[in-house]
């Protein structure tokens, strides 16, 4: 696959108060939910969802929430080291940001994240969840594909 051109918009204008030029990354809360939303666009995730998460009385690592009345149980996890979460916007066929960017730019990176929360519908998070298995696999695959030391 050929590299697609992208523009990085994840760094908000450097904070001028302290004079540092170090970019501040816009951290967002990212949820992986057990359903498909047939809609693309803005949604009031913070007020209508994130802020309703509460730790389970039985296990504070488990989070409880709900979506349209369905009970959800979830868990926060850190992305493995050397991995970074990115939220990307496909610019193809979209007029957004068109004036700021050169015409051949295809992707706009809008957010970065280091933690994610995944949600199960009425099932306690466990090692059997795909997300946890994925993390295991990422570690395994690294070992498997590393050049063998000789």
């Amino acid at each position: 696959m050929s590299q697609r051109k992208y523009v990085d918009n994840t760094e908000s204008s450097s904070s001028e108060e302290n004079g540092s030029s170090k970019p501040v990354s816009k951290e967002v809360s990212v949820h992986h939910v057990p359903f498909k939303v047939e809609y693309e666009g803005q949604a009031n995730v913070e007020a209508k969802f994130s802020s309703n998460s509460v730790p389970a009385p039985s296990d504070s690592k488990v989070l409880i929430n709900q979506f349209r009345g369905r009970p959800l149980q979830g868990q926060k996890f850190d992305l493995p080291e050397s991995y970074e979460g990115l939220v990307a916007l496909d610019l193809k066929g979209s007029s957004q940001l068109a004036d700021e960017t050169s015409k051949d730019t295809e992707i706009s990176l809008v957010n970065r994240f280091e933690t994610m929360t995944y949600w199960n519908w009425d099932r306690v998070p466990s090692g059997m969840d795909k997300h946890v298995k994925l993390l295991d696999w990422m570690e395994l695959s690294k070992i498997l594909h590393e050049p063998a030391e000789d």
Partner: peptide, 23 residues
């Protein structure tokens, strides 16, 4: 709102975006 009541779930079906649950 009791989301499980048909009054509520029917309205969601009509007026909100469609949700497809994995299960």
């Amino acid at each position: 709102v009791r989301n499980s009541w048909s009054t509520a779930s029917d309205l969601l079906e009509k007026c909100a975006v469609k949700i497809k649950w994995e299960s």
